[in-house]
Simulated assay, not measured.
Amino acid sequence: MARKSYFLLAVLSILIGSGVSDWNILNHRKKNNVVSGSGLKTYCESWRINVEVNNIREFEFVPQECIGYIGKYMSSSQYKEDCERAIEECQVYLSSCCNSLKCADGKEAWIFDVDDTLLSTLPYFKTRGFGGKKLNITSLEGWMEKCKAPALDPTLRLFNEIKGRGYKIFLISTRRESLRDATVDNLIKVGYHGWSGLILRDLNDENKRVKHYKAEARKKLVDEGYNIWGIIGDQWSSFDGNPTAKRTFKLPNSLYYVS
């Protein structure tokens, strides 16, 4: 019981944070009556962009003043277009790797994240204040067990294109091993079929930082003789460390930071 409680606390601190946002990122500006109206919108857009380019790191929650803005962005056509554009760049790179329909030799691999890359957790976070409320890991895992996460359509198309070219696809997720059946069921339900491996966190991975856990998972693949051509994910921790891929592609996600 003590080990489980420790794990829940560790995941909670890694994924989003330990509480509702009571830290006001704009306090110093408010004191000078600088931020209001369009100024706040501009600042929140700047905050979002700096999250995406990894200038703002280790944030524990979406700033209280920006929750509404981030919620609107993640629910908007702009978010969908940003995902589409990222996937288009993956497809351009994929076409440059080989020109034939099937060109991989059996040891050429691509890696995908699961949450907010293949499957969207946005329906869950809509009910949780778009990252501004305390994350209840039991609640999140309970939602995952219901297998209701929708596919990200651009990623589904890319997944099928990569598979059609003969590459091996590996899914590396921060989900726990206890969620394997639910994860597989959800993936199949929304149209993902034919991956070569689904790697989830087991007991030995519980206390590792995500970037270390994922780097170790990639090393095992390389040690097995795989060449990693690409990684697609929504978190910078999916790309950190060695070995890495020839190219990495990040999908937007301003709801939480996983390190």
Score class of each variant (00 low, 15 high):
residue 5 S to K: 12
residue 162 I to S: 04
residue 108 E to T: 13
residue 8 L to P: 11
residue 65 E to G: 01
residue 106 G to V: 01
residue 113 D to W: 10
residue 193 H to P: 09
residue 256 Y to F: 10
residue 151 A to D: 12
residue 258 V to T: 01
residue 158 L to P: 06
residue 28 H to E: 10
residue 204 N to L: 13
residue 28 H to A: 13
residue 97 C to A: 09
residue 132 G to L: 05
residue 232 I to D: 11
residue 193 H to W: 15
residue 55 N to P: 01
residue 104 A to C: 14
residue 49 I to G: 05
residue 61 F to S: 12
residue 116 D to G: 02
residue 117 T to Q: 08
residue 117 T to V: 07
residue 95 S to Y: 02
residue 38 S to Q: 06
residue 162 I to K: 02
residue 123 P to E: 00
residue 240 D to S: 12
residue 108 E to Q: 13
residue 172 I to M: 01
residue 187 L to W: 11
residue 118 L to M: 13
residue 148 K to V: 11
residue 215 A to Q: 01
residue 90 C to L: 00
residue 37 G to F: 03
residue 74 M to F: 05
residue 163 K to E: 13
residue 84 E to S: 13
residue 259 S to R: 15
residue 176 R to G: 07
residue 5 S to D: 13
residue 29 R to M: 11
residue 40 L to K: 14
residue 168 K to F: 00
residue 156 L to Q: 08
residue 103 C to M: 06
residue 41 K to A: 12
residue 195 W to I: 02
residue 70 I to C: 06
residue 60 E to Q: 15
residue 63 P to Q: 09
residue 149 A to S: 15
residue 138 T to S: 11
residue 57 R to D: 08
residue 182 A to W: 11
residue 253 N to E: 13
residue 167 Y to A: 12
residue 58 E to L: 08
residue 17 G to C: 00
residue 229 W to M: 03
residue 140 L to G: 00
residue 118 L to D: 05
residue 244 T to V: 05
residue 135 L to W: 05
residue 157 R to P: 03
residue 21 S to D: 11
residue 139 S to L: 06
residue 201 R to H: 12
residue 148 K to C: 09
residue 126 K to E: 12
residue 159 F to W: 13
residue 76 S to A: 05
residue 159 F to N: 09
residue 236 W to H: 08
residue 248 T to C: 11
residue 91 Q to F: 01
residue 216 E to R: 14
residue 54 N to K: 09
residue 225 G to N: 09
residue 200 L to E: 07
residue 26 L to Q: 08
residue 112 F to E: 09
residue 238 S to E: 14
residue 127 T to R: 08
residue 249 F to C: 00
residue 162 I to N: 04
residue 189 K to P: 05
residue 159 F to R: 03
residue 259 S to W: 15
residue 113 D to E: 09
residue 102 K to L: 00
residue 21 S to K: 05
residue 77 S to A: 12
residue 19 G to T: 13
residue 81 E to D: 15
residue 170 F to H: 03
residue 163 K to V: 12
residue 75 S to M: 14
residue 259 S to K: 15
residue 57 R to T: 15
residue 179 L to Q: 10
residue 155 T to D: 14
residue 14 I to C: 03
residue 13 S to V: 12
residue 186 N to F: 02
residue 256 Y to D: 06
residue 42 T to S: 15
residue 87 I to G: 10
residue 163 K to I: 14
residue 152 L to T: 06
residue 80 K to N: 15
residue 206 E to C: 14
residue 240 D to Y: 15
residue 22 D to R: 15
residue 145 E to R: 12
residue 177 E to L: 14
residue 137 I to S: 04
residue 63 P to N: 05
residue 127 T to H: 07
residue 47 W to Q: 02
residue 44 C to S: 04
residue 49 I to T: 10
